[in-house]
């Protein structure tokens, strides 16, 4: 995979409207789903108790439900996991301490493994999510300031647009597939935000460098030529990096076990979204904003010149 910028015909900017509308439609669908169906909130965000039973032999959901019924409990949901040797029973509303101890000792006697019992009031999960959200807003502000200082304000704005695009992308996918959202999911979204910034900054760094090499960049065509050149130059790096990170996240997803499934799935989705936004959204948004800025400046300069010309005329 070598992409030679001198011979490459790849045009990333030409189809920007298609990329923008794809993302806009996709995220819109996400918003609609979010406000109607909502996310499948796990026990971290909905009050209740989950009991995770490790049986070390193949079991069926019916068997586990029967076991619960034998000791007088009726779980709201039983899901099998692992090689069908783990069952996760949830009780919305929750079990009392005594009840969970009873359940634990029953399954301990049955399979020789103490089940995990997690009881949680949703306050904790909600606060964590809120807390994470506020942290991201503060971090975004910090990033804009840093990028404005090191690059230019418009790069910062475009990077933050890409960042929120990626975070919303994961949330949209999760509201479509209705996978359970838990606290590790939030950690995954945060990771992707970090990755997304990293990825976007690397391409922006190349755009900044190429901009300084150009003698005159004024029209949209000239801006997009620089963007295209920069994206092609960093393409091998973008692909190789995302591939290696996907190796790690994919290994976690496929063989990392139940405990990491939601986390690693969110990571893989986010990595795809992050690469997509770095290649097709961030730089294009920047190109549009930059052209507008250049136009404004040119108009100002023209007005200034016209004004000066007028003054000169009146003087003579």
């Amino acid at each position: 995979m070598n992409f030679d910028p001198r011979t490459s015909k790849l045009d990333f900017v030409k189809h920007r409207k298609k990329f923008f509308s794809f993302s806009a439609v996709f995220l819109m669908v996400g918003m609609i789903l979010l406000s109607t169906v909502g996310l499948n909130l796990g026990i971290d965000f909905a009050a209740g108790t989950t009991v995770e039973v490790l049986a070390e032999e193949e079991i069926t959901a019916a068997e586990i439900e029967q076991e619960f019924a034998d000791i007088g409990y009726d779980p709201d949901d039983v899901v099998l996991a692992g090689d069908n040797d783990i069952a996760r029973a949830s009780f919305v509303g929750g079990l009392s301490d005594d009840e969970s101890l009873e359940v634990q000792s029953h399954f301990d006697d049955l399979y020789g493994n103490t089940p995990n019992v997690a009881t949680i009031t949703p306050i904790v999960g909600e606060e964590l999510a809120m807390n994470a959200f506020i942290s991201v807003l503060i971090a975004s502000l910090g990033i804009i300031i840093y990028v404005t200082f090191r690059f230019e304000f418009l790069y910062g704005v475009s990077a933050i647009i890409a960042l929120f695009h990626d975070a919303l992308f994961i949330i949209t996918v999760f509201s479509i597939v209705q996978m359970e959202v838990n606290i590790p999911f939030i950690a995954a979204v945060l990771t992707i935000i970090g990755y997304s910034i990293n990825d976007t900054i690397v391409t922006f760094d190349r755009i900044r460098e190429n901009m300084s090499l150009e003698e005159k960049v004024e029209s949209f065509e000239e801006v997009s030529a620089v963007v295209n050149k920069s994206l092609v130059q960093t393409l091998a790096r973008s692909i190789n990096t995302v591939l290696t990170v996907v190796f790690a996240a994919g290994a976690l997803l496929l063989i990392g076990g139940e405990g990491l499934r939601v986390f690693s799935f969110a990571l893989v989705v986010g990595l795809v979204a992050g690469t997509y936004s770095s290649l097709f959204i961030a730089a294009q948004v920047w190109a549009v904003l930059k052209t507008k800025q250049l136009e404004r400046r040119r108009r100002k300069r023209e007005e200034q010149e016209a004004l000066e010309a007028e003054q000169a005329e009146t003087e003579t």
Partner: peptide, 13 residues
């Protein structure tokens, strides 16, 4: 630059 921005985000978290 890429590392500083990511660390910035991690530090806020």
């Amino acid at each position: 630059d890429a590392n500083v921005t990511t660390i910035l985000a991690a530090a806020v978290l």
